[in-house]
Nucleic acid binder design. Structure first.
Ligand SMILES: [Mn+2]
Ligand SMILES: [Mn+2]
Ligand SMILES: [Zn+2]
Ligand SMILES: [Zn+2]
Lengths: 132, 132
DNA sequence: TTCGTAGTTTATAATGATTCTAAATAGGTG
DNA sequence: CACCTATTTAGAATCATTATAAACTACGAA
């Protein structure tokens, strides 16, 4: 398995559950956005054996901490995650409640002129809300 | 009261509770960011009579719908609102969990090159995460 | 290979922000 | 005032997320 080493290198034991979650999250052509609930459904569809919801939460948070997933800052009753961890932005379609990637190159360079004493910029994320 | 007309013009009855919430939200020198819980505390401090939490939720949502408040897109377990309804952006201090305004002029012009068929841009918001 | 231990999974309970409900109250109009 | 509807309210319900603690597992050491 190609994910065993990835997990080991991160100090995460390559358990059966984590490897299966890796398959669902990373063994795809395209990256995608998901909520925990959506991921749970997807896992049920793609995998024979059941994974506890607690494990899905644990694993997603572990992967996020290791930088394999990103949380998307958006106001929703559920937290959205992204398997695209490159620096990029998002459209949010207010009607369909769907996220669409906005590549870094689709947004001109962003220049933050204000500085905060003793703080460094960790990330700059743009959210473009769409209506009909 | 200066808020009676504002409410009437919005089709909202100027009730005692709404007027008191207006005082707390809008009768200040500076704009500010808040969660419902923080607003509830602030109201308790500044007002003699108690306002039900349900009314605070109702009123904040009504004001947001009328454009007197904005929701700030951020990942938190609580929803953040802003009394600054001008087009502006935010720093988010990850350590202190505090929001800081970034005026529009503090961010260069943002050019969204990608277009989505049949959708219009409603807003463009930048979130700059800060670390030490 | 077996052991020991820490890491992990799991079902289930707890938490907590938000929304819902339905009864009481209050604003506005004639 | 009299009526109607909007609003307020306490409390219950919802539901995403986190905590708990017991069972299980990966894996290095013996
Ligand atoms: Mn939220
Ligand atoms: Mn959230
Ligand atoms: Zn994305
Ligand atoms: Zn602001």
């Amino acid at each position: 398995m190609k994910y065993i080493e990835k997990l080991r290198n991160s100090g995460l034991r390559p358990t059966k559950q984590r490897l299966q979650i890796c398959e669902v999250l990373f063994n795809t052509e395209k990256t995608f956005h998901f909520t925990i609930n959506e991921l749970n459904q997807k896992i049920k569809r793609q995998i024979n054996n059941k994974i506890s919801l607690a494990t899905i939460y644990n694993t997603v948070h572990a992967f996020e901490k290791k930088g394999y997933l990103k949380q998307i800052p958006i106001n929703s009753n559920q937290t959205y995650f992204d398997t695209n961890v490159s620096h990029h932005h998002h459209f949010y379609d207010l009607k369909d409640e769907k996220l669409i990637d906005l590549e870094n190159s689709d947004v001109g360079p962003i220049n933050i002129l204000k500085k905060i004493n003793g703080k460094k910029i960790k990330s700059v994320e743009v959210l473009v809300k769409l209506e009909d």
